[in-house]
Design a protein around this nucleic acid. Sequence first.
DNA 1: ACCGCCGGGTGCC
DNA 2: ACCGCCGGGTGCC
Length: 796
Amino acid sequence: MTISQEIANLTEDSGQDLPEENVQIGSIQGTVVGLRYYTGTVNRGEMVSLVREPQNPYDRNAVMVANVYGRQVGHIKKELAAPMAYIMDNNLARVEGVVPYGETNKFSMPVNLTFWSKEENRDAVHNQMRRHGFKLGTEFKGSLICLFALKNAFDKLFDDLMEDKTREMEPAEAVCTALLPHQKQALSWMTSRENSNDLPPFWEEKSGLYFNVLTNFAVKERPEKVLGGILADDMGLGKTLTTIALIVSNFHNGKPLPLEQTEFSHFIKKKNSNTHCSRSYFISIQDQFEQHIRADVTLKVYLYYGAERKRSVKLLSEQDVVLTTYNVLSSDFGNKANSPLHKVNWLRVVLDEGHVVRNPNALQSKAVLELQSERRWILSGTPIQNSLKDLYMLMSFLKLKPFDVKEWWSRIIQRPVTMGDRVGLKNLQVLVKGITLRRTKNSKVAGRMLVQLPERRVFVQHVTLSEEEREEYEQVRKEGRKIIGSYFEEGTIMTNYADVLAILVRLRQYCCHPGLVAKYTGADDPGTPNELREHLINKITLVLNSGSDEECAICLDSLRQPVITYCAHVYCRPCICEVIRSEKQARCPLCRAQIKTRELVEYPGEEMQAGAATGENWRSSSKVDALMSNLLKLRQEDPTVKSLVVSQFTRFMDLIEVPLREYGFSFTRLDGTMAQKTRAKAIQDFQDSSPGNPTIMLLSLKAGGVGINLTAASHVFMMDPAWNPAAEDQCVDRCHRLGQSRDVVITKFIVKDSVEENMVKIQKKKQELVEKAFGVKKPMDLKQARMEEIRALMEI
DNA sequence: ACCGCCGGGTGCC
DNA sequence: ACCGCCGGGTGCC
């Protein structure tokens, strides 16, 4: 998606931003007088603001006229000011002015006044004007000419703004990390923005005046520099690294950071949404400085944080980089006398996750706006995701005149855009484009993806069961087909869904290893309530441990706080509780059996089943054999190669540990049951390439968050197919990501002539559906689809 | 002429 | 302001 499209999307839901005062109540031409007493000038077609001046000693109704820079131009002629003052003071309408011509007059000039208000105030406004002998009319003629003139300016501007964002720049030698091409581009762009002596975006010099092509505004003074912008790359493209490179490469006046002591300070801030996080954020940024800066470069980085922070301007001024949080910043600011951050003249201020500063009225925003620095940057993966108002905050921070003043932002951008004005939208797009560098993960540099990942190849290895395994499998399959077939005949497939899943899980487990299969707890009739409870716990455990990524039939999302009903259907607790609350005689949405809140049985957590036989009784399986022969071959070819062995069944992982030990593999393990600390240790050990560290990681499909980095692995063995192909992809993403230097080879083991093959077929079908964008789910379809899936799996 | 007219002084609110 | 307005100067035809 391009920025323009993003902005266009943004306007779709921006209706709520519309102020109530969005109706044009009427217009009238007035006169601005007293021009010769003031320095403020205006250009033809320029907007002016009207400010009440109740303290004026000559007329308490005075209405001051100011240009875009707040310079006074004159006053509204007193006869007209009288009714206007009443209207403005009583908030009956907002009045906006545009000077249509006469901009060079010495003594007075016309001004087109437009009254904006709620519809209900229309009469009051008109009456007030009429009492003073003024009649409000409708729109002014000739405004079209202005728009037309603007449009041409845009077309020209568009070309100018296609400024070269593809030029690359090498960072200073102090940066020891090699920058990717798109990061060098960002560095070049940021550096040129900071060192530019050009006028800010959209300003041109014309016969001694500075002219804003976006707004038709002209000023005598050279507009202040805007030495910054928004780096809006997607997450993971290295915004922090690029900024660190900028800090040391463009230290001052284009010079790289000298090795001796520096005299200016920088300032990076990181989101502080939750106080416990901020330390680690700090440390991660501090680490990045250490990691990316050459060891012999002394860079003074100070964490300005915590109650014990030293509120010393001198100390902060001596730093090269000061890191702090938005909370610390605003808390210091609230205590003005004691805010050293606001007394330092920073070389550069960088707002990390800058989109979190959004409400211009919040103390936090004021604290940010009051920081002193010429160079101002916003790092944000989602700068324009929210509302136009958020963007206004960013403009104020960048001091991009005149958009840092609410009235001009509203009149030039926000209102036109929210009212669907195409020129307004174009303005916005040009504005954002001019100050933003945005690349997504899908962007390309010279035809190549920004982040060039090594290849990712998938092989399916078909596993043939041994005669013995096949015999056992077929027996279980026959039994299962009989049971499920009878459910279909009776039409009770949904009421016995948990049993169906149990049968399917058993079949899938047989494909992996017969030792996995728990004692059959099938459709027998439970007696006492305790037995029933035990029975239900078995069922929900089976459903959830099967790795089937069950959906809740109510919210159609993944199960949260899963519970099982007495009729053996699994839902999210909040979902089913809502159903029970809302109905007098609540019934199970899947089978219409009566249900009660106190009869819901919770999932006791993973791994409550008896451990698989990993002791003396251990035996191998065809799939385990296939895995081992692959691993041995790999080790022989290249002993440094590391592999992930992924399964949905943690007990299968237990079983695999046995031959791994037997063949002397050093391995580690990561599954959902492990504590955070042990997980971190497992990952760290695996990522460590020094000899003696594990070369294999047993990984449960669902384990860990999306953030896990397992790039040490270049081979992935998917031991069993998942219902959800996306889960498999995500798992592979953990090693096939930035930092992977080898091609990644994925081997999926699929048992021939088995439920696994059928699962793969269903996977493919689902994938096709998603690709054709038919992935719309309806509750009824879900049930139907499930039944069809079961038929396909059991070949009924 | 307690008018008209002339022309200089002057000028936001 | 090449205006309006003010107020002093002036005054038949």
